[in-house]
Every structure is written in C-alpha cells, then in structure tokens.
Simulated assay, not measured.
Amino acid sequence: MVEGVVTSGDKARRAVPGTVLTGLIGVDIQSSRSPEMHMREAAAQGIALHYELFDLAGEDHATADLTATLDAVQRAGFAGVNITHPFKQQVMALLDRLSDEARAIGAVNTVVFGAEGRVGYNTDSSGFAEGFERQLAGAAIDRVVQIGAGGAGAATAMAMVNLGCRELVIIDPQGDRADDLVSRLPGTIARVGRDLAAELASASGLINATPIGMEGYPGAPIDTALLRPDLWVADVVYFPLETELLRAARAIGCRTAHGGDMAVFQAARAFDLFTGHRADRERMAANF
C-alpha cells in the first residue's frame, strides 16, 4: 500500500510525490494479476509505481459509483486507471476523448489523465494482436470464424481487421450483438454467421471470444468434433491457460494460442500509456 491511498470504493487521497499511481476499477477483481504485472515491470525499470484495486463489488454498479471513483482517482493524482467488467462501455460517457480504436470497438479498458483531460483507450485489441503474432506467427488469416461479439469479441475482431484478415465471420448466440459489431467494424471484411459447422468447414482459424472455458464456465464453446488439424485455434481465456477447447485442438494437431499473451500485452500497452516508458513485453510474458 502506498501511503495516502485507500482501496475498494473509498475516495483515493493525494498521490505520493515521485510515485506513479495506477489502478483497476471493476467488480469482483480481487484475483486480478494486473497489480503484480504492472508493479513488477516498473520495479525492473527502476520506476516507483503502485497499482491499486478499486473493487465495486456489492455496489449497484450504477454510473454514479463509477463516476465517483473516477473523480476520486483523478483528484488524487493518478496517471490513469484500467477499466474492466462491467464498466467498459459505461465509462465512455465520462471521458473527454476516445482513441480511434476505442471508439470503433465501443469499449474502453484504459483511461489516462493528462493535459487533454480523460482519454480512453482500448489496449485489449493490440494485446490480442501482439499475442497472436507471437504464438501464431505466419498463420493464414484469409477466413476466420469468431465466436462471441461482446467486449472481448469487439477487441479481437478489430485486431483481426488490423492484422489484415480478408474475411471475418462473427457468430454470437445473441444475433443482434453480432450485427452491431459488424456494423461498427471498418471496411467490409466482417459479416454475421449463422451456421457454425458450415462456416468452420472452409475457415483458416477459429477465435473463442466468449468466457466459455474459464474457471466457473467449464466446457468448450463449440462441438470439438468440428475441429480440423489444419485449423488454428485462439482463445481469449487465460485462467486456465489450456482450456478444454485448446486441449482438444492441440490433441488433433491444431496450432493454438492461449489468452495469456492477450492479458500480458494489453497490460504492457497500458503500462506504456501510464508511465511514458515502454514495457519489456518478453519480460512481462516470462513473468506471467
């Protein structure tokens, strides 16, 4: 604990001179690895940094709670904060400016306080892209099927657009979410899919952008019998690193990418924004 800072919904007090204060606002975030990732990288660079959790669990999750917490950390001199579930969309209305990527994705996971006021970014998308290139370098992205069109799905879809995917098929049980996401993506490469088996039959790769597979949400998001050895499979879930989907894919010879790198690299980009110093990606990944 840095002197002068209190946690979990209380008002943050004045920052300690010379210390970069950052944190995470969300609900049920006590198991987050963000504090360790940020503070360990800062220590390696000789930067005094403290990362605080502001867990609004038990609150009614109204915008007023988020507003009060955001106001408090800004007054306290925080460099910025990360934002997670369920506030990634709510926070957008409380900001002065959005990065182009955050606006296109429709969600913010990083807020920086500075001369331009409150600026919102989405580092999930670049985090997924960095992790994809690290684990699946050279993989074909001609035609990709993505399951899930929520906040994570919006970030991964934008990442695939930026990586040069030629056709992105988005499938979501809530069809209107898929329609909305496709309408917000630049260009014309994305479309909504309805028949998973038919879409996968000619796909280069599969992205799971749902929570299915993480602790508390066991199982696989698809019938794993639909997998083929020449299909790569990427998952946003990182707890556990090997989900049931990835385990089944690896067993038949698919190239796979776990969600750990996305978690690391989104944090690394946020670190860059908070501190003005570039995080060592490989060091952060090795320490994850």
Results as ranks from 00 to 15, higher is better:
A139V: 01
C165P: 04
A197V: 09
V233Y: 06
V145Q: 07
S204A: 06
A257N: 03
A203H: 08
A268C: 06
R255M: 03
A263V: 15
V161M: 05
L227N: 01
A268V: 09
R177K: 15
A198M: 04
R247V: 03
V236I: 15
R191W: 04
D235C: 07
F239R: 12
A267W: 03
T210F: 00
A201M: 05
P211W: 01
V145L: 09
G259T: 04
T210Y: 00
M160E: 08
A140C: 04
E133M: 15
G216Y: 12
C165Q: 04
I207W: 06
V169T: 15
R134T: 10
D272P: 10
W232N: 11
M214H: 14
L206V: 05
G187D: 02
G153I: 03
A139E: 02
M160V: 03
A159V: 15
G148H: 05
R250T: 03
A267R: 01
H277D: 09
F265Y: 11
Y217Q: 10
A137K: 11
G151F: 07
A248S: 02
D195E: 05
R250P: 05
D172Y: 14
I141A: 14
G205P: 07
I141P: 12
A155H: 11
V182R: 02
V236K: 08
R278W: 13
G216P: 11
G260M: 12
E133Y: 10
A220I: 12
T224S: 01
Q135Y: 12
N162T: 00
D179S: 15
A157E: 15
H277F: 13
A268E: 10
E244H: 06
D235F: 07
D176Q: 06
L136P: 06
V182C: 07
A234V: 12
G175H: 11
C254M: 02
L246H: 01
A157L: 14
R194G: 03
C165L: 09
A248P: 04
A209I: 03
L273M: 15
P240T: 06
A149S: 05
D195F: 03
D195N: 11
I170E: 10
R166K: 14
R278N: 05
G213L: 06
I147E: 10
M214Y: 15
A155C: 12
G138W: 04
R255F: 02
T188M: 07
A267G: 04
S204D: 01
S183V: 07
V192R: 13
E215I: 11
D180W: 12
V145P: 09
G260Q: 03
R228F: 06
L227S: 07
P211E: 04
V236R: 09
H258N: 15
A197N: 14
G148M: 07
R184D: 09
A201Q: 14
A178M: 11
V233P: 05
D261H: 06
A220G: 10
L226D: 14
V237E: 11
Q266A: 05
F274S: 09
V236P: 11
D195S: 04
A159G: 14
I189C: 06
L227Q: 01
A249H: 00
L163C: 11
A279V: 02
D176E: 14
D230T: 13
L227P: 01
A152E: 08
D180A: 14
G193D: 00
P218M: 03
D176I: 05
G131L: 15
